[in-house]
Amino acid sequence: MPLILMHLKVLLPFQILIDNTEVSHIVAETSEGAYGFLPHRLDCVTALLPGILTFFNQQQGEVFVAVDEGILVKTGTDVLVSVRSAMIGNDLTQLRATVEKDFLALDEEAVQVRSIMAKLESNFLNRFVSFQQT
């Protein structure tokens, strides 16, 4: 009996991160817990939580994908995952370090954006007050 494989696509807002047609099974973190997806599993749609999505294929073995929140849609043997951000790795320790580094960079960027927004708001209010006084 031939092995039935799934087609996994992981979509980001700006690119297709994964397009793999030889996936035997997938494990994803949902709001209801971790679920395994096999080719014959019923079709479904589920919300994904930030966490690790794992899939397995013969060539790469077990592959880990750190994902942000998103959605997973399974129809037949096609599995479509759409998330805001994701990173691939074969080693969980290395993947964790990469994710932490990227989140720290995002935190620094958010602080800079808040600072710029505060300056813009302050400048706007000062101009608004001076406009009302004239």
Score class of each variant (00 low, 15 high):
P13L: 10
S82P: 00
D19N: 15
H7L: 04
I26C: 02
H7E: 08
A105G: 04
L106E: 11
V99D: 00
Q132C: 07
Q59K: 13
I18M: 02
N20S: 07
V81E: 00
G89Q: 05
Q132E: 08
G36Y: 06
E62W: 08
A34V: 09
F103I: 15
K74W: 03
N123A: 12
V73F: 03
N57D: 14
P13A: 07
S115H: 12
L12S: 04
N90C: 06
A105T: 14
V67L: 04
V111D: 11
T93M: 10
G76W: 08
A105W: 06
N126I: 14
H40Q: 13
A34P: 02
P50Q: 08
L11R: 06
K101N: 11
D91I: 12
R96S: 11
A97S: 13
D107R: 15
L12F: 07
N57W: 03
R84C: 11
V99S: 01
V129E: 07
V10Y: 02
E121I: 09
K119D: 12
S24R: 10
G89W: 02
I4Y: 08
T93R: 09
I16F: 00
R127G: 14
V73M: 04
I71R: 03
F14D: 15
D107L: 13
I116M: 08
D102I: 09
D19P: 04
A34G: 04
F124M: 14
N57R: 05
N20L: 04
F128E: 12
E32S: 13
A28D: 05
E108Y: 09
F64M: 06
A47Q: 11
G33L: 07
V27Y: 02
H25L: 09
I4F: 07
G70F: 00
L8A: 03
E29Y: 08
S115M: 13
L49M: 14
H7C: 02
N123T: 14
A110V: 11
S31G: 14
K119A: 08
G33K: 11
L42G: 13
L17N: 02
S130Y: 09
T77L: 03
E62K: 14
